[in-house]
Design a protein around this nucleic acid. Structure first.
Length: 514
RNA sequence: GGCGCUAUCGUCUAGGGGUUAGGACGUGAGAUUCUCAAUCUUAAAACCCGGGUUCGAUUCCCGGUAGCGCUACCA
């Protein structure tokens, strides 16, 4: 049996533990999401812990970036944020306990020596593991050297034989040979990079990741560790420490990685990896959550049946409430998943369409502001239903609807005013005739979609033209483009004055072609 | 290199000893419409390879291959 089973009755405590050496990226966001869904599903507690023990690479700005990403995604936590850099005493005490119990020992090898030996080992084709030479040093000798101020790291004394194993909630039983695990460093020595706190003299007092995760996970009474599968190989080092400290093992649930389209690990060169970039594109957080949740998780996990809709098709569109209700560790997939931008765009479009217009128009507003357009709330609300089926990203709303909000249309090709084939003639003269006639009828008719529909179809009839091609002329005149929302609704929103002005302008634009 | 994990349409996935291997995104075609979308219909598209086990394997087992991860006094 790999380990003692944790008592299942406890209410779950989970954590998201990013390292502030970068912004919140897509992979981290999904890990955070899974932890959040799990906590909310089980009524457990989500803790946010900032792993900033790499002083050289961590920054305040990145902490803020991560917090911004979390709040945009709507992932709230219950405890924290805790900063590991402020919990150094815990790590020192934890290391001391392991030294005292003989599970850890001081190592006086310098970084250079280690590097040299590693290279020699590599050249000789030997495994590049630490040779454990300082483990031989008698305790009293080591104590004396430390007392004399000789820099030392603390290493964990890994058993030289046997195996270490654990049961992963996603991957099942995983076993490692102890002989393959090196005596890893728990506490860094002095004079080594990351030297900011010389509180111990011989050590800089800063733990490595291996120590700080375990010390904190125990201290924070975490029951489940949900994190990226890149940590599977680290897990035995942690299990060993749990044992050394006499602590109960949490349940590990490793989540497969997210890859780029070329199937390598997702990184900057794949384009946007910061979740904030998705915010800026106009992805809705609820859509992002939906998309991310289904990357590496399905409703059909374990013995459950996949969720189907009325037509018997697998459901993929979920509100966040549904995700919370449905989420389970059993549904987590084992294999890595490629991040598919097209599918994300589709999810976003679906969520856009599912959203009440009032809400959508509020979400759209900042994007117009950013583009230098300042629609009134009323007008934006009127425009929103006209474009909501035409945009995949909120940002697209600007290019789809800018003509509603500008005084002067952007220049367009006057040739576009000429109605497409479908009428006997199709030239500039015809376009002018249309525009002139239309100006007359529009001067007096009611400006609601129904009346405009009726009026303009009548106009086509009296001109002896097919309505469709003729509408195209009006559309270009009024919108300044060939593709736009439905004509009558659009005109109704624009109003009589603006429509007439633009049609007059179009007539002028056409003169050179006539 | 060593160790670990994984392997179903291009992508996300369902399924599971006997199935027409299901769905979604994307792609093609068609319908509809005042354009563009949306919507509807439809088509093409997958069980990595080799051995077992079995009456029968895509499914179970083993091996190979490939991909990914780890291999730091990074996390």
């Amino acid at each position: 049996m790999p380990d003692s089973a944790p008592s299942p009755a406890k209410t779950p405590r989970v954590r998201f533990a990013p390292s502030p050496t970068g912004y919140l990226h897509v992979g981290g966001a999904r890990t955070a999401l899974f932890n959040w869904l799990f906590a909310r599903h089980t009524g457990g507690t989500l803790i946010l812990r900032i792993e900033d023990t790499d002083v050289d690479r961590s920054s305040e700005a990145m902490v803020e970036g991560i917090l911004e990403g979390m709040s945009w995604l709507g992932l709230n936590w219950d405890e924290g944020p805790f900063f590991q850099s402020q919990r150094l005493d815990l790590y020192k005490a934890t290391a001391a306990r392991m030294v005292a119990s003989g599970h850890a020992y001081p190592c006086f090898c310098t970084k250079d020596e280690l590097e040299q030996r590693r290279q020699q080992a590599a050249a000789a084709g030997r495994p590049a593991m630490y040779d454990r030479r300082c483990r031989q040093i008698p305790a009293d000798v080591a104590q004396a050297r430390i007392a004399a101020g000789e820099p030392a790291a603390i290493r964990f004394a890994v058993p030289e034989s046997g195996t270490t194993s654990f049961t992963d909630a996603v991957f099942g039983a995983i076993e490692f040979q102890n002989a393959e695990i090196e005596d890893f460093v728990l506490l860094r020595s002095a004079g080594v990079p990351n030297d900011r706190s010389s509180s111990l003299g011989w050590s800089n007092g800063i733990p490595t990741y291996h120590l700080s995760v375990v010390a904190d996970d125990i201290d924070m009474r975490l029951t489940h560790i949900i994190r990226g599968a890149d940590h599977i190989s680290n897990t035995p080092k942690q299990v060993l420490q749990y044992r050394a400290l006499g602590a109960e093992l949490p349940i590990f649930a490793h989540v497969p990685l997210i890859l780029g389209p070329d199937k390598t690990r997702l990184s900057k060169r794949h384009g946007a990896t910061s979740v904030i970039a998705y915010k800026q594109m106009g992805i809705l957080p609820e859509a992002f959550r939906n998309f991310l949740a289904l990357l590496g998780w399905t409703t059909g996990g374990g013995r459950k049946q996949i969720l189907r809709d009325e037509k018997g098709k697998d459901r993929e569109f979920f509100s966040s409430e549904e995700l919370i209700q449905l989420f389970s560790l059993e549904g987590i997939t084992k294999s890595n998943a490629v991040f598919d931008n097209d599918k994300l765009a589709w999810f976003n479009a679906e969520h856009i369409r599912a959203m009440p217009v009032e809400q959508l128009s509020l979400r759209l507003e900042p994007f117009f502001q950013q583009a230098g357009l300042h629609p009134s709330p009323e007008k934006l609300l009127a425009v929103t239903p006209l474009i909501r089926e035409r945009i995949k990203f909120l940002r697209d709303a600007v290019s789809a609807a800018d003509f509603f909000f500008v005084a002067q249309l952007a220049p367009y090709d006057p040739a576009d005013l000429i109605p497409p084939k479908g009428n006997l003639t199709s030239d500039a003269a015809l376009a002018i005739r249309i525009l002139q006639h239309v100006q007359q009828v529009l001067a007096t008719c009611s400006f609601d979609p129904e009346s405009l529909d009726q009026t303009l179809r009548q106009a086509a009839q009296s001109l002896g033209l097919k309505a469709g091609p003729m509408f195209q002329t009006i559309r270009v005149a009024v919108c300044g483009r060939k593709n736009a929302p439905p004509l009558f609704e659009t005109m109704a929103v624009l109003g009589r004055e603006l429509c007439l002005a633009r049609i007059r302008q179009a007539e002028e634009n056409l003169q050179p072609l006539a």
